[in-house]
């Protein structure tokens, strides 16, 4: 997993609520057996028409917007557990998703892949949308060690929550597998005392 510390970037707005993982990456593109290459089908049916032509007006097709931060409406990533959704967003070049609410499984999947789900209040989210609308080149600074979203245009620092362990993992590029595999002794001891052997 790639390390994440501080990111300075413009952002792409997607002011839609309840974006489900079927929109992020439709099921028909889940047939690959590797983790790579999902980015080209990110938001496929919103981004391209049935002939494969870019749909005008969709923010990812709009040259005014760029950057490694995706800003989306509340309850982002609901629906299926497909980790392909996190892979597709990452593969398309994003490192942070800002929303006012994330679905649980998506949040976990993102963190396991070096993609930071950054939760802000509904109010801040709306202000961010307005800010990008007014000036699409607005810069955002995501500082993970400080747990701060800094918006130079507002001269404002907004703190965000993240689990302490997950924060360490992101900063160091570790994942849970390394940790769990090192727990073997405790796991074996637990197994000897399981109440009921299923």
């Amino acid at each position: 997993m790639e390390k994440f510390e501080v990111l300075r970037s413009a952002a792409v707005p997607l002011a839609i609520e309840n974006i489900d993982t079927d929109q992020i990456i439709p099921a028909r593109f889940l047939k690959a057996t590797s983790r790579e290459g999902f980015g080209k089908n990110l938001f496929r049916d919103w981004r391209y028409d049935s002939e494969g032509n870019p749909i005008e007006g969709f923010p990812l097709n709009d040259s005014r917007y760029s950057g490694q931060i995706l800003v989306a409406g509340k309850n982002f990533g609901c629906g299926s557990s497909r980790e392909h959704a996190a892979w597709a967003i990452y593969d398309a070049g994003f490192r942070v998703v800002i929303s006012s609410y994330f679905a649980d499984i998506f949040r976990g999947n993102a963190l396991n892949n070096g993609l930071l789900p950054l939760q802000v209040s509904d109010e801040v989210l709306q202000r961010i949308f307005q800010q990008i609308e007014a000036d699409p080149t607005t810069e955002f600074v995501v500082d993970l060690p400080k747990q701060e979203l800094y918006i130079p245009a507002w001269e404002e620092r907004i703190s965000f929550d993240i689990d302490a362990y997950k924060k360490e993992c992101l900063i160091n590029g570790y994942d849970d597998i390394d940790f769990l595999v090192n727990q073997k002794e405790a796991i074996e001891a637990y197994e000897k005392n399981r109440i009921w052997a299923y």
Partner: peptide, 16 residues
């Protein structure tokens, strides 16, 4: 669970 967690369970029968 997501696929990374599928790997975790395969490797340790546990999740964090």
């Amino acid at each position: 669970i997501g696929t990374s967690q599928v790997t975790q369970v395969m490797a340790s029968q546990c999740l964090l």
